[in-house]
């Protein structure tokens, strides 16, 4: 029997339009055999959480380069909890200063991938976590 494919939602919360990273990662995950859904731009935290639950994903990958992560990431984590979907693993990337990372991990983001990340590290991380 074939193993069930890992399902990932790649999401762009907020107003940021930089989607090169999100799209490259989405494609790399797909090439690594995962089922990838990409939300497109300007998603509210609520929309992202709803889509994640509807699509029954294992992982949400968030991308922000605008600096709004300090507000939007915790809000997404709060909504996941509110909807009893804390089992979804949340990872994030973008222009995120090192000093913000501990706070984001505290609210439940599993890992932050900063600029220069090798997509294979993201793939391995997901495969390791979703078992």
């Amino acid at each position: 029997m074939k193993a069930k494919k890992i399902r990932v939602l790649v999401a762009k919360p907020g107003l940021d339009g930089h989607d090169r990273g999100a799209k490259v990662v989405a494609r790399a995950l797909r090439d690594a055999g995962m089922e990838v859904i990409y939300t497109g731009l300007r998603q509210t935290p609520r929309q992202i959480v709803e889509t994640a639950i509807q699509e029954d994903v294992n992982v949400i990958g968030l991308s922000i380069l605008s600096g709004a992560h300090t507000h939007l990431f915790p809000e997404i984590m709060r909504l996941l909890k509110e909807n009893k979907a804390e089992d979804i693993i949340v990872i994030a990337g973008g222009v995120i200063p090192e000093e913000d990372i501990p706070e984001l991990k505290k609210v439940g983001i599993a890992e932050i991938f900063t600029p220069g990340t090798d997509t294979r590290d993201i793939i391995n991380f997901i495969k390791e976590k979703v078992k």
Partner: peptide, 16 residues
């Protein structure tokens, strides 16, 4: 085209 008090503006005002 959103004012600073629009719900979509939360967390984005003055950032970039």
């Amino acid at each position: 085209g959103y004012d600073s008090d629009h719900p979509m503006s939360l967390g984005e005002v003055g950032k970039v």
